[in-house]
Design a protein around this nucleic acid. Structure first.
Length: 456
RNA sequence: GCGGGCAUAGCUCAGUUGGUUAGAGCAUCAGAUUGUGAUUCUGAGGGUCGUGGGUUCGAGUCCCAUUGCUCGCCCCA
């Protein structure tokens, strides 16, 4: 027999995992709502034209494409076929793809519905996304993102609120050792200007983003491989490895960026964001201006964020930033600035598991099982069940007439804390045997007494 | 796309320089206990040793190929 399995990089979530996942999702959802964000869902699939070209060449490779229905060979261009050009053939046989993130579908939604939307529009969205990536630890082909974006305002209050929402979320989830890294595209651009590397910005950013992961020497090697002059590196690393608090970093860079409008603007905005967080009455613990934070996605134009939990093996659990032109890719007249942030639910889950932060009773189950000995007590039990459910008690009756042992085993495995055993005695007297599965105690009680105990 | 590791019962794994009928724990099922779980005891079922080929008197073990999984690299939540 062939082994059955899910596609690799995808997972089932059983009841125990769902309980924990719901805990994360419900907590974050509540916080997003508290900040005025409204829910949105978009389809799993989008037109490929919506998705392609938004994530760079690498991103396009990672899009899952959906084969056209029916005779998908109908529209294949013969020249593409003869030339064996699979990339062009892909375009002929697939016109839809699975969403790669939630931000681009959101931008599409905004452009399509701009006349109905009240701006600034704040939406949150918790849905799976798909990447045709090679699965690894903490990296899945199907995973959930939990996005909150604001579109239609340049106000830096949004950035400040993102920081606050991250802090609130981690507070609720019990995560204490983490850092919110913040940087600004303008700062990165100014660095590129200083190196006279304006044409190779993204190449530069990808390399320096690895600084804390692979170290200074490796980054130097990579930069030289990517064609950067070794004479320009000392200045770069003087900037990247500057130590100090957020304020001294800003001061240091202000000198360096004296000639760069982009750089000065970036520093001003960063400073304002941090000020706003303080004006909210929150502290700046965990918030760190990190000059080497770059992030891959090309559409960011302002502040960028990344969140890491310390001492876990999962990598970053969230990221985001401001994008001025995302909606413009769908309509050049549309120039809404947006800023957003995304938690990776799956990585948060892995981190909480690693840190042992899930409460032990996360898995929800019935609080009571009715076990019975014969058909007469079964009928009696059905009425009890109905009564208890009306009182809001989650309870169930074992569906088949079988040994009490079996019914007890069932309750034990499902971690149901109470069992009522009904036999002819109970039916006659109306006093029911209530067993506490934790202590093993069992007493004959009236319906009201049982309700009192079980309701607690 | 590139590199490393692994593949034996449902699961986690042991299996000696190659040697008779491939083992353990957990899980499952039954019984001890026909009105009581978790704990205890007894028993049972469960294997194409990933697949194909080769070496050998003999292969779970050695060689080659292949597939699957997995950990890294690129990139990313």
């Amino acid at each position: 027999m062939d082994k059955i399995s899910q596609p690799k990089g995808t997972r089932d979530f059983g009841p125990a995992q769902m309980a924990k996942r719901s805990l994360i999702i419900d907590s974050i959802k509540k916080i997003f709502q508290r900040y005025g964000f409204q829910p949105l869902e978009t389809p799993a699939m989008e037109n490929l034209s919506t998705l392609q070209g938004k994530y760079g060449d690498e991103g396009d490779q990672l899009l899952f494409k959906i084969l056209n229905s029916g005779d998908f060979l109908k529209n294949v261009n013969k020249q593409h076929l003869e030339a064996h050009n699979w990339k062009l053939i892909t375009g002929d046989i697939a016109e839809k793809g699975l969403r790669y993130d939630l931000t681009v579908p959101f931008a599409r939604y905004v452009v399509m519905n701009r006349h109905e939307i009240t701006f600034p529009f704040k939406r949150y969205q918790i849905q799976p996304v798909w990447r045709a990536d090679r699965p690894q630890r903490g990296r899945y082909r199907e995973f959930y993102q939990c996005d909150a974006d604001v579109v239609g305002t340049d106000s830096l209050v949004c950035e400040a609120e993102i920081i606050l929402m991250i802090k609130d979320s981690f507070g609720v989830l019990g995560i204490t050792d983490y850092s919110i890294k913040i940087n600004h595209r303008g700062v990165l651009s100014a660095v590129a200007e200083l190196l006279a590397a304006s044409g190779k910005e993204s190449s530069l950013f990808v390399a320096i983003d690895k600084l804390d992961k692979i170290g200074e020497e490796k980054v130097k090697e990579e930069l030289i491989e990517r064609g950067f002059e070794s004479s320009s590196l000392p200045l770069l690393f003087e900037i990247l490895t500057f130590h100090g608090n957020n304020q001294s970093k800003v001061e240091f860079l202000t000198q360096k960026f004296a000639a760069s409008e982009k750089g000065k603007k970036g520093l001003t905005e960063l400073t304002q964001v941090l000020e706003l967080v303080k004006n909210f009455g929150a502290d700046l613990a965990h918030v760190e201006f990190d000059i080497s934070l770059a992030r891959g996605l090309s559409y960011y134009t302002g502040c960028i964020f990344e969140v890491k939990i310390n001492n876990v093996s999962v990598g970053s659990v969230g990221g985001g930033g401001r994008y001025d032109n995302l909606t413009a890719v769908f309509d050049s007249k549309e120039k809404s600035s947006g800023v957003g942030f995304s938690f990776g639910i799956d990585r948060l889950y892995d981190a909480l598991e690693e840190l042992n932060l899930f409460p032990p009773d996360a898995a929800a189950s019935s609080t009571l099982l009715v076990a019975y000995l014969d058909n007469e007590s079964f009928s009696y039990g059905l009425k009890i069940i109905r009564h208890l459910r009306e009182q809001g008690i989650a309870c169930e009756i074992y569906p088949d007439l079988t040994k009490v042992k079996k019914q007890m085993e069932y309750a034990d495995r499902k971690k149901i804390p109470f069992v009522i055993v009904i036999g002819s005695d109970e039916v006659k007297s109306g006093l029911l045997s209530l067993k506490n599965m934790k202590t093993g105690e069992q007493h004959k009680l009236t319906h009201e007494q049982i309700l009192d105990i079980v309701k607690k």
